[in-house]
């Protein structure tokens, strides 16, 4: 198992190079001039050239990239073009907001999707199944920004139960953004749980379990559901890692100070250092999250654990 984890961590190194280079090169080739964008209409051509030289923009792409990567491996992610802020500090300040929101959102996703998915599978082709399936399709179809705005209008402005914006009011601030983020994820996972469980329910070993006289509840929960968990965990893991990179729309609607808005602001303003830093750090967190999910498989499925241990 340790060997596997070590291997996965090693893979991170080329991954970081690849991601950082792609982002760096894309940002460099994006239309517009970062220096002109930074200084607006306040400098003469001579001054703009001076600024470009000072900020190192006149060096070739590979030279700048090399300089940037050298910094990263020393733990220095550089300073943002706007406000000269330390990129790592800025990212780490925003990260807890995103992680907490992602955790709550995935919790919401799981508590909604697993029971509804199981019930829909067990009651296949009944009106309950039809309602849950329709609900899931609706949840997938509703645009996040619209849902967010509606939730704010109803629960914040009209009913006054939750704050309109920001993360200042503890758990209360998290509820609406978590629900907004969770609805689409829960809908997808409900459908996944249903189909995965339906596949398992048809397996022969469950007939044996039932023949032994085990109750239907125990058959489903202890035997069928456990075997159906692997694809569910895979999707949930991917959803969680997706949430960790921040949701731009939801963060924007709820004025959430997460890394989604930070990354988008960096891209919009052509801040190459900040944008590349955000991409690299998000890649690292996502890779680690996916690794944790993979390790969790071993606890869900003994066959996978046996592969790791070679037994």
């Amino acid at each position: 198992m340790l060997k596997y984890i070590f291997k996965r961590i090693l893979i991170l190194i080329p991954l970081i190079f690849l991601v950082s280079f792609i982002v760096f090169a894309l940002m460099d080739n994006a239309p517009g001039d970062p220096v002109r964008t930074l200084v607006g209409e306040n400098m003469t051509e001579e001054q703009i050239e001076q600024k470009r030289e000072e900020l190192g923009f006149n060096d070739p792409l590979l030279v700048r990239y090399g300089r940037y990567m050298k910094g990263i491996f020393r733990g220095d992610f550089g300073k943002s073009l706007y406000g000269n802020k330390d990129v790592l500090k800025e990212y780490l300040f925003r990260l807890p907001y995103t992680v907490k929101l992602a955790l709550l959102s995935i919790f919401f996703t799981l508590i909604i999707s697993i029971p509804t998915g199981i019930i829909a599978a067990v009651k296949q082709n009944t009106w309950i199944d039809a309602i849950f399936s329709a609900g899931a399709i609706m949840g997938l179809s509703i645009p996040g920004f619209w849902l967010g705005l509606m939730l704010v209008l109803i629960f914040s402005v009209k009913l006054g139960w939750f704050p309109v914006y920001g993360a200042d009011e503890g758990l209360k601030s998290y509820i609406l953004p978590a629900i907004t983020l969770g609805v689409a994820n829960a809908s997808l996972l409900t459908r996944m749980t249903r189909s995965s469980l339906l596949d398992t329910i048809r397996q022969d070993y469950l007939k044996t379990v039932r023949a032994k006289g085990l109750s239907e509840r125990k058959t489903i929960l202890n035997h069928a559901f456990r075997n159906a968990l692997i694809p569910i965990a895979t999707i949930a893991g991917s959803q969680f890692s997706g949430l960790l990179s921040g949701s731009i729309i939801v963060e924007n609607v709820f004025s959430w100070p997460g890394i989604g808005t930070l990354t988008v602001t960096a891209i919009r303003t052509h801040d190459i250092t900040l944008a590349t830093g955000c991409a690299v750090l998000t890649t690292m967190f996502t890779a680690v999250t996916l690794l944790i999910v993979d390790v969790l498989y071993a606890f869900i499925d003994p066959r996978i654990k046996a592969q790791y241990t070679g037994k």
Partner: peptide, 18 residues
């Protein structure tokens, strides 16, 4: 000064007194 990127949310925050 609170950072509220969505201007419509800013209107809602004002109407609610936040």
């Amino acid at each position: 000064v609170k950072v509220i990127p969505d201007l419509n949310i800013q209107v809602a925050a004002l109407q609610k007194g936040e």
